[in-house]
Amino acid sequence: MNMQTNHPNNFSFTLLDGTPFHICNGQVVLVVNTASRCGFARQFDALQKLHDRYHADGFTVLGVSSQSFGKQEFDKAYDIAAAIKNKCSTVTFPITELTAVRGKAIHPFYAWAAAQVSLLGRPKWNFHKYLIGKNGACITWFSSATDPLAPKVIEAVEAALAN
Rank of each mutant, 00 (worst) to 15 (best):
P94E: 05
N25C: 08
G103Q: 03
P151D: 14
G39R: 06
H107C: 08
G58S: 12
A115R: 04
V29W: 09
V153G: 04
G18A: 00
S66A: 10
A83F: 13
G63A: 08
P20C: 06
F69C: 02
V153N: 09
S66K: 02
Y78L: 09
G18S: 05
P123N: 12
A159N: 13
I132G: 06
L161H: 07
F13D: 03
H22W: 14
V29F: 11
T140H: 07
V157F: 00
H22A: 12
E97W: 00
W141I: 02
G63T: 06
V32E: 14
A56F: 00
D52T: 13
S89L: 02
D147C: 04
A46T: 03
L50D: 00
N33H: 02
G121T: 08
L47M: 12
T5H: 12
A105P: 05
N9V: 01
V157Q: 06
P151M: 10
L16T: 15
L119Y: 08
T90D: 09
E155Q: 15
I23S: 08
P123Q: 11
T19Q: 14
A156H: 06
L50M: 00
Q43C: 04
C38R: 00
Q72A: 01
F59C: 11
G121Y: 12
N126G: 10
N6I: 03
P148E: 07
V31Y: 10
N135R: 10
R102Y: 00
N163W: 09
Q72C: 03
S65D: 12
A137P: 12
Q67R: 14
G136W: 04
M1A: 09
V64K: 05
A111Y: 07
P8M: 05
F44E: 05
